[in-house]
Design a protein around this nucleic acid. Sequence first.
DNA 1: AGAAATCCCAGTAAATTACTAGGAAATATG
DNA 2: CATATTTCCTAGTAATTTACTGGGATTTCT
Lengths: 171, 171
Amino acid sequence: MSVSLTERHYGEYTAGRSGKMKLSTKGRYGLRALIDLAQYSGDGPVSITSISVRQDLSERYLEQLMSLLKKAGLVRSIRGAGGGYVLAKDTKEISVGDVLRALEGSLEPVDCPGLDPEGGCKAADSCVTKYVWKRINESITRTVDEISLDQLVEESRKKCASDADRTKCKN
Amino acid sequence: MSVSLTERHYGEYTAGRSGKMKLSTKGRYGLRALIDLAQYSGDGPVSITSISVRQDLSERYLEQLMSLLKKAGLVRSIRGAGGGYVLAKDTKEISVGDVLRALEGSLEPVDCPGLDPEGGCKAADSCVTKYVWKRINESITRTVDEISLDQLVEESRKKCASDADRTKCKN
DNA sequence: AGAAATCCCAGTAAATTACTAGGAAATATG
DNA sequence: CATATTTCCTAGTAATTTACTGGGATTTCT
């Protein structure tokens, strides 16, 4: 009989029964983590451990998400004891779109080769659906780019201020 | 040595290297098929075989997509020789949103239990990201619901009318 | 020196996608 | 009435992706 010692962070396979057009846990967890980071930074860098405890996320997994955010230039890291992460820009300068693209890659609903010139889509010029994917893409982009991290942090502050039980404040 | 007799419709695993937030082939193929159906109906029902030839899609797979469209009440079927499919409504009454939801299921980027009342999201009331997913959902919904099949058929007609080589007209 | 962090890479079970396959049932036509 | 054509239904499967876990090197503060 084998016993697993490490408790599994009970997984969300793209939030229960999935359809498509879903954000993965990367985008969902990552945005929560970044809001948390924004809230708790100010007195020095914020460690992955502290975020993972507050937000109830796997420490190891979060590590990977932070790496993506770093690569995208949204956060900076400070190594060694007492280290952690800080935002690389002001919260007003970071949009939800920046965060999600860093974590999920392109948010375009279809990687249509007809959308960029060098692609080799056979039906490129007679392609009608391309127009649809473009419209969807524009509307998603517009939406996520007009929400700033700043707004979310503010919103969270309001909600959690009135909340006696801080552990419930998980974004 | 074994030889495969059935040629595989060389697959698109969600359009090459995927990210997330992607439409599956169901949505992409299905919309093309429905545009085709709209264009070629008028003189009786349109068969799956004819659509699959014109649009270069797997006949068997398309069958499954049509079944979904039927279940959603977008098309009606006529069985037996000379049968096929016809639109169940006018093209003006069918939106891209109707089609995509029939094929892909919900288009919401996150199945957030906090979004419907009876869900059991622990962080429900302090959940800030929920607001983001709601905004994205609204913008996608608005966009896909304001494009009608009618518009796409018209667009396709314009493009293909000036196209000598009909085989290129694949939507 | 030692603890606390980030960093980096590898592995894996579960889920999903994008099909293929087989055959039953219905219907028009010769 | 036989036959071809067509929808209908269910099952199977290889490739791919997701959502993690794990080990260990490296950096830095104390």
